[in-house]
Amino acid sequence: MTTPAPAPTPTERPPAPDPASEFIDRRTPVARLRGVLHRYPAISPGVVLVVAILVFGALNPHFLAPANLSLITQQVAVIGVLGIAETLVILTAGIDLSVGAAMVLSSVVVGNTAAGLHFPAPLALLAGLATGLLAGALNGILVTRLALPPFIVTLGTLSIFTALLLLISNGATVQGTKLPDLATWTGGTFKLAGVDISYGVVLMAALYLAVAYVLGRTAWGRHVYAVGDDKEAARLTGIRVNRVLLSVYMLAGAIVVIAAWTQIGRDFGSSPNAATDANLNAITAVVIGGTSLFGGRGNIWGTLLGALIVGVFRNGLALIGLDVLYQTLAVGILVIAAVAIDQWIRKVRK
């Protein structure tokens, strides 16, 4: 007598997924914070700026006075414009150590062509623009055609531009009284809510709006981010990487000339010794503003916040009586802290 075969056991089915599980964030609060900062890099510099304003306003009542706020905005204008140029380069995972020297070189060319060669102001400004474009093109060609590291290239052109500006100017300053009104126009002011706002600040704001639109709304802007995130992947998708890089350096060179024009208006003259710490402050503004030194992440508004933070810290520390040495020390600490935060944010799980 044969025994019947055992009935097959039903296969176990995996439990049905909970429809609500995808909406539950199981990460720790720290991980969630890191994710938010990764998506919105301008949050952290915004918080730092607000806290700094509140602290310095409490320590010295003169900090929030209209005259002092006007001074801060005028000081920020030059670094803010230079920061735009530096942001574009850093977004491509490069760096430009020559922006300050290129700015002073352009201002020297404008001053000496207007005062020494008696060029009309528009032609003098065009000569400055040509200088900035050539400086940017030189950096871009060395980076793209010779495949040299941006750090080494711009370190070398920093010395070249510095030598050229001293050669052209003979080490002499061109006073604003010898320059046409258009050359010093950026230093003029008008009142807004009791605060004197310079035309250089207005020019800076317009430039931020324009570059923010280009980076966020155009194919070229998306290509800049793609190149900075991964050059090889960008190349495989059909992006002409070298063309994008060259255009970035040339646009940065053109923006540097606007910074030079703003500097001439602020100083009411063209000096070869102007803005000796411009490179440090511009890079500081970009890094504090949340743009990653490794490229592909950041936005232009963060750079504006970073420039304001640098201006607020230098001004606030001066008002409470700290020496310039400690102001520079504070800026250095801010840079290290910003890079450390950037490294921490980059570890976020996508």
Rank of each mutant, 00 (worst) to 15 (best):
Leu126Trp: 13
Thr184Lys: 13
Pro150Glu: 09
Ile239Phe: 11
Thr144Ile: 03
Phe190Glu: 05
Thr154Leu: 12
Ala147Asn: 13
Asn273Ser: 13
Gly253His: 08
Tyr199Ala: 02
His223Pro: 00
Asp181Ile: 12
Asn139Tyr: 13
Ile255Cys: 08
Ala274Glu: 09
Val195Phe: 14
Leu207Thr: 02
Leu133Gly: 08
Ile168Glu: 09
Val174Ile: 12
Ser159Ile: 03
Asp229Gln: 10
Ser247Gln: 15
Ala252Asn: 05
Leu138Val: 09
His223Arg: 06
Ala163Gln: 10
Asn242Tyr: 08
Leu246Arg: 10
Leu164Asp: 01
Asn139Asp: 11
Arg222Gly: 01
Gly216Ala: 04
Gly188Thr: 09
Leu158Cys: 07
Ile255Arg: 06
Arg235Pro: 00
Glu232Asp: 12
Ala147Val: 12
Val174Asn: 11
Gly238Cys: 02
Leu164Tyr: 08
Asp181Leu: 13
Ser159Asn: 10
His223Trp: 14
Gly176Asp: 14
Tyr199Val: 01
Phe161Gln: 02
Leu134Trp: 13
Lys191Pro: 09
Ser271Tyr: 08
Arg235Val: 04
Ala163Phe: 13
Val241Tyr: 09
Ala260Asn: 06
Gly265Asn: 05
Pro150Thr: 02
Arg235Tyr: 11
Gly216Glu: 04
Leu129Arg: 04
Asp196Phe: 14
Ala147Tyr: 14
Ala234Ile: 06
Asn273Gln: 11
Gly269Arg: 01
Pro149Leu: 13
Pro150Asp: 11
